[in-house]
Design a binder for these strands. Structure first.
Lengths: 146, 146
DNA sequence: AAAAGTTGATATTTATAGATATCAACTTTG
DNA sequence: CAAAGTTGATATCTATAAATATCAACTTTT
C-alpha cells in the first residue's frame, strides 16, 4: 500500500497499458470518455498511464466484471464522494459548484469555474486519487461524520 | 411531497401492484430478493404493497431503465447511506454491525444482532424510507458533515 | 369446495452494456 | 522519411442483466 513517487509517473503509452491490463485500447478510451479515469496527456494529446493509473483501472474492472456494477453506477458512486470535505472548499465555492449539487457524474467530470478547484488539475487531486474503491468512499463518509 | 398515513398502508396484493406498475409479478419478487424493497407480509406470507412502496419501486425502475444503474450498483449506493447517523447508534452498536462495515448491500439486508436496530422493523426505518434516490442520499451526506 | 390468486423455483427470452474491429488522419520514434 | 503507434469516429459483436413464462403446492375469497 506504500505509494512511491515513481508510481505516479506517467510512462506507459496506451498500447502498453492495454497490454499490461489485457484489455483493448478502445476500452481504455471509453473509460476516459465516461469520466472514470483521467490519463496524463502529452502536448501532442497522446495519453500516458502511470502504475497508479493501472491500479485504478484494475479496480474499476473488478467493479464492472466481478461486482457487476455498471459504468453509470460507478459514476453515480463517485458523485457521492464528499469532495467538499476533501478539498475544504468554502460555502461560496459550494454555491458555484455543479459537482456539489449534482449526483450523476464524478466531481472531476463537471465544469467548476469560480471554485477553489478552478485551476487545479483533477488528475492530481486527492478526491480522484484516494477514493477509487467503494470501501474507501464509505470510510471517508464515516470520517467526516464527527 | 406530502406523505399521508394512508400512503404507508399496505393494501395492494402483488398482482395489483404489478398491474399498477406495469411490470411482472416476478420482477417485484426479484427486487425483493435483491434487497431493494421490503414489502409488508401477512401472516400467511403474502405480500402487500403501499402507495409509498409503489413510488419507491418506480424510482428504482428509473434508476435501472433510464439512469442505467445496475441492480448491484443500486445496492452498493444504498450501502453508502450513513445509517449510523440516521438511527444514532452507539460506538458499540457500530462495532457489532455488519452493515456499518460492509459496502455491497443496503444495511437492511444485513443481519445486525446486538445493535439498536436488532428488533426494529427495517421496513419502518427512516434509512429505508427516506433515502431512496441518489439526490436524497447526497443531501444526507452533506447534512452530516457539519 | 371451487375459483382466483399466491408462493418459491427453474427455465427461457430479450434488450443492451461492455467490449472489439476497422478506418483515415496525425504523431512519434529510430 | 519510413515504420510503428496514436488520434477520434463509426460500425459490429457478444456476454449477460433484467425481464418474462411456466410450474406444482399452498392461500384466500366468495
Amino acid at each position: 500500500m506504500i505509494e512511491r513517487i515513481e508510481d505516479k509517473e506517467p510512462i506507459f503509452p496506451i498500447s502498453a497499458a492495454a497490454k499490461l491490463l489485457n484489455i483493448s485500447v478502445h476500452t481504455l478510451r471509453m473509460y476516459e470518455r465516461e469520466g472514470l479515469i483521467i490519463p496524463f496527456k502529452k502536448e501532442s494529446n497522446q495519453r500516458l498511464y502511470s502504475k497508479s493509473d493501472l491500479e485504478r483501472i484494475e479496480c474499476i474492472r473488478k467493479a464492472i466484471n466481478e461486482s457487476k456494477i455498471s459504468i453509470n453506477g460507478i459514476k453515480t458512486l463517485y458523485s457521492l464522494i464528499p469532495c467538499w470535505e476533501v478539498v475544504k472548499c468554502s460555502i461560496k465555492d459550494r454555491k458555484n459548484c455543479k459537482a456539489y449539487k449534482g449526483h450523476s457524474e464524478p466531481c472531476w467530470s463537471y465544469e467548476h469555474p469560480k471554485t477553489i478547484c478552478e485551476k487545479r488539475d483533477c488528475r492530481e487531486c486527492d478526491v480522484y486519487q484516494k477514493y477509487t474503491q467503494c470501501s474507501e468512499i464509505k470510510e471517508l463518509i464515516k470520517s467526516i461524520s464527527r
